[in-house]
């Protein structure tokens, strides 16, 4: 299905948010997710159903001052 991930349209086969994270091989990373403006905790990823056109943010820590 088509999802808006980090501001870009992405075609991803996914039922849950965990599938989306897995699609990008990010399960083992310290990634924080937001779906339609709501932060979803890691332990809720497999229970969060994704639907077409949902806006998903996948963010992490980078170097900064």
């Amino acid at each position: 299905m088509e999802l808006m991930i980090n501001g870009e349209k992405q075609e991803v086969e996914a039922n849950t948010l965990l599938d989306v994270v897995s699609h990008f091989n990010l399960e083992s990373h310290l990634v924080v997710t937001e779906v339609d403006g709501q932060i979803i905790d890691r332990d809720q990823w497999d229970q969060t159903t994704v639907k077409p056109e949902m806006k998903i943010e996948l963010v992490h820590f980078v170097g900064g001052g």
């Binding site: 501001g7 990008f24 310290l30 992490h60 820590f61 980078v62 170097g63």
Partner: peptide, 30 residues
Amino acid sequence: TFAIRRVNLDAPSEDAILQHLDQDSFTYLP
């Protein structure tokens, strides 16, 4: 200190800074 940014979906593994650090020895200030 750190910053928060979107994961680069074309290269998801790059620049995940905390992977290089022993997390218990520091206090993190994002």
